[in-house]
Amino acid sequence: MNFFIAEIINAIKLGSIYALIAIGYSIVYSILGLINFAHGDLMMVAVYSLWVLMNLKIPFALAVILAVIITMLLAIITERVAYRPLLNNGEETLIITSLAVSILLQSISQAVFGIDNKALKVPVFFTKRIQIADFTVSVMNFVILAVTIVSVIVLAFILKKTRIGLAMRAIKDNSLAADFMGINRKAVIVAAFGIGSALAALAGITYTGEYVSFDPQMGFMLGIKAFIAAVIGGLGSITGAALGAFVLAFLEIFFAGYLPDSIASYQTVFVFLILILVLLVRPDGLLGKNAKRS
């Protein structure tokens, strides 16, 4: 029983992190129709930025804010330099380019920081453990969940109540009509990259805050998994991305936790089988009606 509850806590933690990444994926996808392979690597950028800033003795809270901003700026620069010139060149071109951007970010980070694992030391407050009934749960667990919930609320507010949010939803709904309204798509794309990368940065920081170790390639696989989560939920839908993230996290954790070791090592295989299964049975995901973009 204790094991079961511990697994649920783990799944919620992992699901929250997946959700942050998957939502960012979904936002960029719904505006641009781009699967940004480099999205996961933005997490890595945020973590390295934070690590450098903390080594410069900048207070933790400020360092986190700066790391998020650096990540956003970098995402916006990649959009400007690499993606914008290709907007009308077809989706393959964008996919290939995003893969190249991903490799570029990883290799620059390898060149600058080396290929070895590093450890992120968050302030002790976060690693404190709280006793709840028979369990001890670290503060970080609550922080992760809180960051995700607050991010989703802020995002919902932006999408519902602000002008740029209205424009984002309009482009996702009907991009031609959005053009007729005089919505400047380029500006909205920049906003989408900004929001998506901020979420990725938060995901990277909370992830590393919990699991400590990080390296230049940490983001790639997480990014792919988050993409799968977004597809499971229904690509382009925010709620879908969050739902898919938790579904994937629960399946993964319980797969690894309850099956014999000889099978549990096939966890990655299992994740992709889920993806294929979802695409066969419900190509638009659990919540998606029709993603509107073909």
Partner: peptide
């Protein structure tokens, strides 16, 4: 990773 840096820039 210098090869990858140069290659991915070339690629873009």
């Amino acid at each position: 990773g210098i090869t990858n840096i140069v290659m991915s820039v070339l690629f873009i």
